[in-house]
Amino acid sequence: HESKLSILMDMFPAISKSKLQVHLLENNNDLDLTIGLLL
């Protein structure tokens, strides 16, 4: 999960990174759901 998140972070600009982190917190680190929201 950690490395997947790092790769994902590299793919998005800074603003999207903050949104990603907020979504991860709100969704209890449900990375798949977060990716779904961003794609």
Results as ranks from 00 to 15, higher is better:
S16Q: 10
L5R: 00
K4V: 04
G36R: 13
L37T: 14
P13L: 01
L39R: 15
D32Q: 13
G36T: 12
L37A: 13
T34A: 09
I35C: 08
D32G: 09
S18M: 08
L38N: 03
I15D: 05
L8G: 00
Q21K: 09
H23Q: 07
S3Q: 10
S16F: 11
L25K: 08
H23A: 10
D10K: 06
I7E: 07
D32R: 09
M11A: 07
L39E: 15
L33D: 13
L37E: 12
K4I: 08
V22D: 10
L8F: 02
M9Q: 12
E26K: 09
L31K: 02
S18E: 13
K19L: 07
S18A: 10
G36E: 14
S6M: 06
M9A: 11
S3V: 05
K4Y: 14
L20S: 02
L8Q: 00
M11H: 05
L39Y: 12
P13C: 02
L38K: 00
N28T: 04
K4S: 12
D32S: 07
L5M: 11
M9C: 07
I15M: 09
N28C: 05
I7A: 14
K19C: 06
Q21P: 00
L37G: 12
K19H: 07
P13R: 00
F12Q: 01
L8E: 00
G36V: 04
S16M: 04
A14Q: 12
S6Q: 12
E2P: 11
A14C: 09
K17S: 08
D10N: 09
N29R: 06
K19P: 01
S18L: 09
P13T: 01
L37K: 13
P13K: 01
D10S: 05
M9K: 07
E2S: 05
N29P: 05
S18Y: 09
N29T: 04
H23G: 04
G36C: 11
L39N: 14
H23D: 03
L38M: 10
I7R: 10
F12Y: 15
K17V: 06
L8S: 00
I7G: 03
Q21F: 12
L33W: 04
A14F: 11
L39S: 14
L38Q: 02
H23E: 07
S18D: 07
S18H: 10
K19T: 12
D32P: 06
L5S: 01
N28P: 02
H1C: 15
K19W: 06
I15Q: 09
F12A: 01
L20I: 15
S3K: 09
D30Q: 06
D30S: 06
K17C: 04
M9W: 05
D10T: 04
E26F: 03
N27E: 07
E2K: 15
H23L: 07
L37Q: 12
V22I: 13
Q21I: 15
E2D: 08
D10A: 04
N29S: 10
L24I: 00
